[in-house]
Structures are given as structure tokens and as C-alpha cells.
């Protein structure tokens, strides 16, 4: 082998190397991101596009798909069951928010140094640990006519018992109450960790300035809990919008469909025993997605702004 040949090959590798070296910093992040991006595209973006595409078809999941354009949406906006579900979804969103202040107050209440406080804290956290299905079952028994504790309580107070889950006026409130039980525990734990980080100096200073009680809470403590509040609101909004399991366990959407929410209606139309209208189910999913997007973009916008600000 001649010297020149060695030099040439060395030069070739150095050219190769230098391309890699030149662009290393630019390429490396993409290489590291690639597996994640691939998974995200395959399991998130592709199904979203596919659902939107499916919502323009009439399809029973077995036979041929028939293109019907916006017909599913036209039907949806003329469907009483859809409006019932939408109304219930809004009720869920609004009432579920009670979990945030309720969680804060329980956290404040438990944030003290008493003997055995850890046991109390974990007892309060317990509802979040058990499965939603179990929560649903417990509350169904609680409300059950003839033997439920709540039924007997109402009967004792008013003379006539109310079967919450059989009455279209109360059923959604009954299910939301069941959902709030674990959700409050979740918010409480978020606030308990937040309270650990409240700076004692500021409380000291506020105390010297004469702040106490509500003013202390509102102007000194709560502002310092902002990160915890943000997360609590996010998980509560998401929890409210995906409130499927409790509805399914406690009432199956009944009585006569009055406790449906959008996610449950979508399941019923697309996948349940009496459903298999894939296109119509997809159209409901798209509407639910649009509603979620409002919140998600809000959260993302806030996070980006915070990051840039900080």
C-alpha cells in the first residue's frame, strides 16, 4: 500500500467524520427524539387523523365503508342524546372543579404537626388509590334503593327515599359526587406537596405586617401554590372529560340515557352491543377532541409562556 493511498483513505474518513462532526449538535437531538417521535406519530397522530377520516363514513365495522360526507355531523347536531351528553359534560367540568378548592382546604387542614398525622394523610388519600370501578360500585350501593345508606338517610329525613341513580334529575350529580371523592384526594396530595415548599420567611414577613386568616391565605399562601393549582386544574379538567368508567359502572348511561357523557356516548355508538356505528362514534370523538383541544391549547400556551418568562 502506498503512502498516497493511505492518505486518501484517511482523508475520506475525515470528510465523513467531519460531516458528522459538523452537524453532530444539530443531528443528535433528532436522533434521540426519533424513537419518541415515531411512537407519537404511530400511536397518537395517526389514530387522530384516522378517526377524523372515519367520521365521514357510514361503517358497521364489518362491511364496506360508505362515504357520506358531513352526514354524521348533521345527524349529531340533530340528536337529543348528543345534547344530553354535552350538557352532562359541561356539568362535569363545572362541578368537578370543586375538587380543587376542596382539596386545598383539606390539605391546609392536614398540614400540621400532630402525632400520627401521616396516618390521617394517607387515610384521606386512600380514595384515590382504589380503582374507579370500585368507587363506582361503592357509590351504587350507597345510593341503592331499599338498602342503600344514602337512600335510608333521605328516607329518614324526608319520609320518602330517592333512588338517585334511577332519577334523571339527580343521576348526573350522583355520579359526579362519586367522582369528586377520589379527585379531591388527588388535589389534596398535590397541595400537600405544594405546602411543603411555601417559604416560611414570607409567612413571617406577612405576619409582621399584620396579615392573618383569609388575607394571609389569599395573598400569601395561594400565590405561592400556583404551580400546584395549575396541575390540579389540569388533572381535574382531564378527569372530568374522560369520566367514562363511573358512568359505565354506575348507570350504563341510564336511566334512559340521561347520565351519558360524550365519551360514553361515543363508546355506545361505536363499540357497545347495540352500537357498531363506527362513523358516528368517530364523529362524536372528533367533537370531544375539539372540546379537549380548547383546554389543551390553553394549558400549552400557558406553559410555553411561563417557560419563556422564566
Amino acid at each position: 500500500m502506498t503512502d498516497s493511498a493511505i492518505a486518501a483513505s484517511a482523508e475520506a474518513t475525515s470528510v465523513n467524520r467531519s460531516y458528522w462532526r459538523r452537524n453532530q449538535r444539530k443531528l443528535a437531538p433528532w436522533l434521540f427524539l426519533a424513537p419518541g417521535i415515531a411512537m407519537f406519530l404511530l400511536y397518537v397522530i395517526y389514530p387522530i387523523v384516522e378517526s377524523m377520516w372515519l367520521s365521514f363514513y357510514d361503517w358497521d365495522g364489518l362491511g364496506a365503508k360508505a362515504w357520506i360526507g358531513l352526514e354524521n355531523y348533521r345527524e349529531l347536531f340533530d340528536d337529543d342524546a348528543f345534547y344530553t351528553s354535552l350538557k352532562n359534560n359541561i356539568l362535569w367540568l363545572v362541578l368537578y372543579m370543586l375538587a380543587v378548592p376542596a382539596g386545598l382546604f383539606i390539605a391546609l387542614f392536614l398540614n400540621q404537626t400532630v402525632r400520627g398525622i401521616r396516618i390521617y394523610k394517607s387515610l384521606f388519600f386512600f380514595p384515590f388509590v382504589i380503582s374507579q370501578v370500585v368507587v363506582g360500585l361503592i357509590f351504587s350501593w350507597f345510593y341503592a334503593p331499599n338498602f342503600g345508606l344514602f337512600y335510608h338517610l333521605i328516607e329518614w329525613l324526608t319520609g320518602t327515599g330517592v333512588a338517585v341513580l334511577a332519577d334523571d334529575r339527580y343521576v348526573t350529580y350522583g355520579i359526579i359526587a362519586a367522582g369528586l371523592w377520589p379527585q379531591i384526594a388527588y388535589c389534596m396530595i398535590l397541595y400537600l406537596t405544594g405546602l411543603n415548599n411555601v417559604s416560611p420567611d414570607q409567612i413571617e414577613a406577612a405576619r409582621l405586617d399584620g396579615a392573618k386568616g383569609w388575607r394571609m391565605l389569599w395573598f400569601v399562601i395561594v400565590p405561592q401554590l400556583r404551580p400546584a393549582t395549575f396541575i390540579a386544574v389540569v388533572v381535574t379538567v382531564i378527569g372530568a372529560l374522560r369520566s367514562f368508567d363511573l358512568v359505565s359502572i354506575m348507570t350504563d348511561g341510564g336511566p334512559y340515557g340521561s347520565s351519558r357523557v360524550l365519551s360514553f356516548y361515543m363508546y355506545e355508538q361505536a363499540l357497545s352491543e347495540y352500537g357498531y356505528r363506527m362513523g358516528y362514534g368517530a364523529a362524536i370523538a372528533v367533537v370531544l377532541f375539539a372540546i379537549m383541544m380548547v383546554f389543551i391549547s390553553g394549558f400549552i400556551w400557558k406553559m410555553v409562556r411561563d417557560e419563556q418568562g422564566g
Binding site: 345510593y143 341503592a144 334503593p145 331499599n146 333512588a163 341513580l165 334511577a166 341510564g254 336511566p255 334512559y256
Partner: peptide
């Protein structure tokens, strides 16, 4: 006339 079990929707 109420001849059917009350609260049957919850049973």
C-alpha cells in the same frame, strides 16, 4: 296507578 316496582330503573 303505580303497580310496577318503584325505582326499577336502578335495579
Amino acid at each position: 296507578p303505580g303497580y310496577v316496582t318503584a325505582n326499577h330503573a336502578a335495579l
